[in-house]
């Protein structure tokens, strides 16, 4: 059974993105194990000269290392991903590289009707950068608009169409994870390239 890490892309106490991931964890329990990870406790990234990565970041990196893939659920602030999520990804690409070649599924929920469309595009761009170089599932978007109305009291996604879409995408993601495992010819080179990025020697 696949094991996934699900990153809650916010530090807010109340978050429909968290609700969405919790729902997936429960709903797809027969298909995969999903562990939710919070990013609230990471300090502000400040590119420390001593290259010290906080323990909270290495702990997340280890979880990602051991997982078959990562699901990220992002809110949208100011037409982009939240600072706290960008911050987590900065730490997770600073002298540690858990995302290299790791399959990633991006989803998002918003109160309004757009469902984080721009934040997801932004997040794709970030995850595609050389120090992260994740394997983002292509041509797939799960945009959950009007998210405050999307769940019932038990945290179940009520809209059947949305649920069918999410189920389809999640099943696709599992296939994508298997396919990605075969796209392995450049893994070693990618890993080396990332490790060789030496900011000091430039």
């Amino acid at each position: 059974m696949h094991k996934f890490i699900a990153i809650v892309g916010t530090n807010s106490d109340e978050s429909t993105n968290r609700t969405l991931l919790q729902f997936m964890q429960k709903h797809f329990a027969a298909q995969a194990t999903i562990e939710l990870v919070e990013i609230k406790d990471l300090p502000m990234f400040n590119k420390p000269e001593n290259k010290q990565v906080p323990a909270a970041a290495t702990a997340i990196a280890e979880k990602i290392d051991q997982a078959d893939g990562v699901i990220i659920s992002t809110p949208e602030y100011d037409h982009s991903a939240p600072a706290v999520l960008m911050n987590a990804l900065e730490w997770l690409s600073f002298h540690i590289h858990p995302f290299v070649d790791k399959p990633v599924m991006i989803i998002g929920a918003s109160y309004g009707s757009l469902g984080t469309s721009r934040a997801q595009a932004h997040l794709r761009q970030i995850l595609d950068s050389p120090e992260l170089r994740a394997r983002i599932m292509p041509s797939s978007e799960f945009l959950l608009g009007h998210s405050l109305q999307a769940f019932d009291a038990d945290g179940n996604l009520v809209d059947e169409q949305k649920l069918a879409k999410l189920t389809g995408l999640f099943t696709d993601f599992q296939t994508f994870v298997d396919i990605t495992a075969e796209l392995n010819h450049a893994n070693e080179a990618n890993r080396k390239e990332v490790q060789n990025v030496n900011w000091d020697k430039l």
Binding site: D78, A83, V84
Partner: peptide, 17 residues
């Protein structure tokens, strides 16, 4: 950083919006 602005700057802008 990672093809985008820093989280630190983004955080400032979020407070200011």
């Amino acid at each position: 950083h990672n093809h985008t602005i820093t989280a630190a700057l983004k955080s400032v802008i979020e407070w200011l919006s």
